[in-house]
Amino acid sequence: MEEVSWRAFPRLDLETPTPPFRLADGLYYVNAMESVASTMETQAIAGRTVANLVARDT
């Protein structure tokens, strides 16, 4: 039996800045984090971030 080890999560380097969550008054970009890491967990955090922005802005 051969054992192979690998990194479970890749190292992510940000070469380009991520877009902002708030694009304009009343306009939000939920997928702002998708260019960095596209996982269910990061999308859930991004959705919560936008929901907090909407709640704070109203």
Rank of each mutant, 00 (worst) to 15 (best):
A51G: 03
A24H: 07
P19V: 12
E3M: 11
P17C: 05
P10Y: 06
L53N: 02
V50Y: 10
D57Q: 09
V4I: 10
F9Q: 14
M33D: 00
L23I: 15
S5A: 05
L14F: 07
T39W: 07
M1G: 09
A24G: 02
T16D: 09
L23F: 08
M40Y: 10
A55V: 08
P20R: 08
T16A: 09
L53H: 06
L14N: 06
Y29T: 01
A24R: 12
P10A: 14
M1N: 05
T39F: 15
R22C: 13
V50D: 05
T49Q: 13
A55S: 14
A24N: 06
G26W: 04
A51H: 05
M33L: 15
S5M: 08
R48M: 08
V36Y: 14
P10S: 08
E15P: 00
D57C: 06
L53P: 01
A51S: 13
S38I: 03
R48A: 11
L53M: 14
T16P: 00
T18N: 00
A46I: 10
E2A: 09
M1R: 14
V50I: 13
V50L: 08
F21K: 01
L14E: 13
G26A: 11
V30D: 01
N52V: 02
A24M: 02
D25R: 15
L14W: 04
T16N: 00
S38L: 15
A32V: 06
T49R: 15
Y28I: 07
T49W: 03
L14K: 14
T16V: 06
N52C: 04
S5V: 13
A55W: 04
V36T: 12
L12K: 15
T42K: 05
Y28G: 03
S35G: 12
Q43S: 15
S38K: 11
T16W: 05
P17W: 02
Y29P: 00
R7C: 02
A44K: 11
P17S: 12
T49E: 07
E2I: 10
T42N: 07
M33H: 03
A44L: 13
L12Q: 13
R11W: 10
V54D: 00
E41I: 08
P10G: 08
R56L: 13
V4Q: 03
A24T: 03
T16G: 00
P19L: 11
L14I: 15
G26V: 04
P19W: 02
V30R: 05
R48S: 10
V36E: 04
D25M: 02
N31A: 11
T39C: 10
D13N: 12
L27Q: 02
V36A: 10
A44Y: 04
V54M: 15
M33W: 11
P19E: 08
